[in-house]
Design a protein around this nucleic acid. Structure first.
Lengths: 216, 216
DNA sequence: GTCTATAAGGTGATAGAC
DNA sequence: GTCTATCACCTTATAGAC
């Protein structure tokens, strides 16, 4: 516990477990793969973490907690509403681009064994009330068209996340010849502006003259 | 092969396999569960389909083929472009609502073991050229704002599919008290119009006067 | 704390009776 | 075509030496 190697090994294991679990899921992950990835052997996994399920729980909870601040932080500013959207889209796409397996992992586990994970999520709170109010406020001001805040939030997240988790299918049908992922990478980069424009064009109220976003 | 029972059992097995594979994925599925679901025993599974992998292939390919016509058929009409979008969104949401595990299943398998599935997809062709041209044509006419057809297609599909596959997470954070799924069902129903409006509002060219969609 | 060896149980697949 | 019994292997987990 107070040994330097302990911490290093523990962290190495968690990092390895994250990599394997995120790519293969709980059912598809192998303790041997995690051990190999961490450069140790299987027995040590059970020494640090009692079971596969326990190790999974840690990875899963970290994954969820890791994803949330990204959603919230941008809306905690005083920026113009459309700028918040631009910043959120840009930063969230950047985040997902660096963690492409994260959304799929969370959603697949949640869908395939909801009962096992309910309590794992119960600790985690996410306060979206202030975002809801932020959106509703803009609707009331007439800056944006009437839309239920939940739909708008879901729309924005959908436009960011789905293209990343559906990459293998998209790549297969849309860009079959892209071995180095160059086209796809460019596509993702384009989306930082495309998605923000798409959302803002959709919600901005044509009757309102206050349409320009601040170019900071 | 010419026995009535053969066909019934074979179909029963495939239906059972689809149910189990779609919910748990290849790695999480158990042959025993499939046998139970089909009301037969394990040995019979191997009698009809040689291996788990073989059975999976059939289910996977059927799943992909099943999903594609939904995407294409609406755009094969002469309707007004915005009406095509409305119809596509409505019908696709209806389809996914009835097959909520389908998109996640395909994408998870494709992401977690792409090498195994490459050849399974190689048989399946999807021709989206005419949709691309359809969109580009509207851009050229000035009916809609400039946007790369691929981005628009991805946007529409994202807005339809993501809310369905992320249901467990959404439900957890947005509507924690919805045991009978009433709120979620209503949310999905709302999206048939919300998504179409969202897309059309975003792309319609304010300079063009030809904005009304035909109310058929 | 880390390793090797092995136990204990599960899972896909087959043999063989009916 | 369908079943029961069983094999062979894989995977998680533990025991025990160092």
């Amino acid at each position: 516990m107070d040994n330097k190697k302990d911490i290093n090994t523990e962290q190495k294991i968690i990092a390895a477990a994250k990599k394997v679990f995120l790519q293969h899921g709980m059912a598809g992950a192998r303790m041997q793969s995690i051990a190999d990835e961490a450069g140790i052997n299987k027995a040590l996994l059970h020494y640090y973490f009692r079971s596969k399920e326990k190790l999974f729980s840690i990875v899963f909870q970290k994954a969820v907690k890791e994803s949330i601040p990204q959603i919230v932080k941008v809306f905690n500013t005083d920026a113009h509403f459309f700028d918040k959207i631009r910043r959120f889209v840009s930063e969230y796409l950047e985040f997902i681009g660096k963690n492409p397996y994260l959304p799929m992992f969370i959603m697949h586990e949640l869908a395939s064994r909801p009962e096992h994970l309910k309590e794992l999520l119960s600790n985690i709170k996410i306060d979206i009330d202030f975002i809801t109010k932020d959106i509703q406020n803009e609707v009331d001001k007439g800056t944006i068209r009437p839309i239920k805040p939940m739909h708008l939030m879901v729309n924005i997240v959908s436009l960011c996340v789905f293209p990343v988790i559906s990459k293998p299918m998209m790549a297969k049908f849309f860009i079959p010849d892209d071995p180095e992922d160059n086209i796809y990478a460019q596509f993702l980069e384009e989306r930082k502006t495309v998605v923000a424009d798409f959302v803002i064009n959709s919600i901005k109220n044509p009757k309102s003259e206050n349409l320009k976003t601040k170019e900071s």
